[in-house]
Design a protein around this nucleic acid. Sequence first.
DNA 1: GAATAAATGTTATAACATAACATAATTAGC
DNA 2: GCTAATTATGTTATGTTATAACATTTATTC
Lengths: 131, 131
Amino acid sequence: MRTSQNNLNNTEIVYNYLKDKEAPLTAYELLNDLHSKGIVAPTTVYRALEKLLEAGLIHRIESLNAWKVCCETHNKNMPIFEICDDCGSVTEHLDASLTQSIKKLTKRTGFLPNNPILEIRGQCVDCNSNL
Amino acid sequence: MRTSQNNLNNTEIVYNYLKDKEAPLTAYELLNDLHSKGIVAPTTVYRALEKLLEAGLIHRIESLNAWKVCCETHNKNMPIFEICDDCGSVTEHLDASLTQSIKKLTKRTGFLPNNPILEIRGQCVDCNSNL
DNA sequence: GAATAAATGTTATAACATAACATAATTAGC
DNA sequence: GCTAATTATGTTATGTTATAACATTTATTC
């Protein structure tokens, strides 16, 4: 029996919900928030997230165990995330010189990069200027 | 009642064990391996890891949920880790130009960095040259 | 040696993630 | 359109990572 009320599949439901969020959400936050859409098991959430990740539509924020939509303007650059530990906002940045630095490093060491994880924990401009 | 057999405290026990490892260990791997030293609860392991982290003696590898001793030659540079998904080895690197790139980015965005998490998943030189 | 602080022990549980297998929906070929 | 194969989904259970809450012990200070 199909439990969802409309013709969106789980992957689309998760993506649409995540799309509007400033801060990333954990899988269990998604599960909780999307109960009303017929998503009732962790497995369902994780399967959707896996597909979105493969499609390059979302990123996993490793240091938060949370998920965020991709800005989709990578243009060959590696994404780096600024994570505000005060307000929880996460912003994605693309930076050519950073990307070059990492490429140089891996070239020098002979490492074959696959998935760079670049996250900076700290305080965003709004939070550190309001002190 | 004191259960450990010698005069090392838990923090030292964990550090000494971690020190010799090429690959990082998870908290539960440490727990399992250090049962014989009287460490029998997750809490004990996490408390030791927290102290070592504060002391700057270890790093947490976020994308592996695992822990590794610090090379202790940072010299103001931010550590970046190359993580081999084939053999599990993790190597720590210090790179001035990478550090500069990140500083420039945070200066531009007004972000106050606290803890940079820089990890590259991929294939180490040994694993990618043996193909 | 009593009072305080720091470290450790113990039990329970929260939070994050996947395994294993059953069923349903979609599609591809005939 | 029917059947087979594939893909998606549902369901239950469990594995893995991390912390809370509180008791006890050890070390330190006066």
